[in-house]
Computed example of a mutant assay.
Amino acid sequence: MIRLSEIAPLTCRQDTKIADVLRRLSESSYLFLLVTDETGRLVGTITDGDARRAFLRGVRLDDSAAACMQREPIVGRVDEEDENLRRFGQIRARNAFLPIVDADGVISEVLYSSADVGQLSALVMAGGPGTRLGELTRSKPKPLLSVGDRPILDHILERLEQAGIHTIYVSVHYLAEQIEAFIAARDNAGTVQVLHETERMGTAGALSQMPEAARGEVLVVNADIMTKANFSAIESFHHRQGHDATIAVANYEVQVPYGVVRHTEDGIFQGIDEKPRQMFLAAAGIYLLSPQFTALVPPDRAMDMPELLNLGRSIGLRVGVFPIHEYWVDIGRPHDLENAMRDHIESERT
């Protein structure tokens, strides 16, 4: 446990836009903000999970912090040290915090502790042939295509290492020797071990090839995405919600190229919407799985992630979704790679 006495970086106002709340949470070492009024009095708290759950209820990025804050947070009181420690010890969260307030409700300090995300291992799925990229993957596997001056796989591994995950497995199949050579030459921050798929194992089958000791909680990441998603936030959200599996999802917008007719059940015209846009939550290629889920993967056949998730849900395991509002792109086609390279150049300039 530590005591945080510099309060200003941890606070926001009720009218702060949720987009700014998420930006500050992603840039902070902590996964919470304290909401105060104009006098500095505590009126609520927001965790990363609170903000993302609000999106699932339809709250938007330009809504205010008041739309997603906890209005009756647990607090401690100045000069009640023993009681504060007792309350803090009762908080069951990976990133536990307890604001300490004075008689006027003004924040004096915050008690805080964080569990080590390093308990997680990660599996990067890098075995696919990348056929939709055509000639680009004829002689080079998709995870080794460059965005900026580094391969996609290097960006992913660096992101995992920055989250404190130092036991990483990479499943390979197509042009496996190139990926293995890249990992061997890379300056890895932890252990990065290659798992060879002698046959294509699907998007979840390689979990069965991980050593038993590593098949606890596993963060599975596809090797064809570029993202700034906060892996530590996913882990915290997963535990706070009591999930057995958590699926990261990203907004995907589709525009219908025609006018869409609205009508009653008996065929009476009600109106027409010209080329409407529809928003869906798409699986983002990032999954956090409990041991109960990894134990369901058969050792002798291929399995895709939807089959595994549906199987777990059918036997009563709890599956949740984690909305990503940080940068994310799936590199499936040549124009996706071009967009990722352009985005990377722009981010380097800023």
Rank of each mutant, 00 (worst) to 15 (best):
E83R: 10
Y258I: 09
F97R: 06
S5T: 14
L309D: 04
G40A: 03
E265Q: 07
A214E: 07
K228E: 14
A214Q: 01
I179W: 09
F231H: 05
R71D: 04
G128M: 10
H155L: 15
E212S: 14
G320T: 07
I107F: 07
Q209W: 01
P291A: 11
D343Q: 13
H166C: 02
M201A: 12
T350P: 01
I286M: 05
D20N: 11
A176Q: 15
P298K: 12
I315W: 12
V261D: 07
P257A: 08
L133A: 03
A122G: 06
P276K: 10
N84W: 09
K17M: 06
E135C: 02
S171Q: 04
S5M: 08
I247E: 10
F182D: 02
Q162N: 10
A213C: 08
A176E: 14
R132D: 15
P306E: 07
E83W: 07
L311F: 04
P151L: 04
E217M: 06
I91R: 09
V329W: 08
G205F: 08
Q255M: 13
H238V: 02
D79Q: 14
L4R: 04
G316C: 08
N310G: 12
V261W: 02
I345D: 12
A250Q: 09
N310H: 07
H344M: 07
V101S: 07
K275C: 15
N95R: 14
R262Y: 00
H239S: 10
E72A: 13
Q162E: 14
M69G: 02
L309K: 03
E81F: 15
I156E: 05
V75A: 07
H325Y: 14
N84R: 08
Y30V: 14
Y287H: 10
Q270R: 11
M279D: 09
E109S: 14
G118M: 02
T191K: 10
E27L: 15
K275N: 13
G118C: 00
P257N: 12
Y174L: 00
S28L: 02
V59N: 04
D154C: 13
A189Y: 03
R23L: 08
P299E: 12
L136Y: 13
I165Y: 00
A302V: 00
A163L: 00
Q270K: 07
E199C: 08
R200S: 10
G49H: 02
G76V: 03
G332P: 03
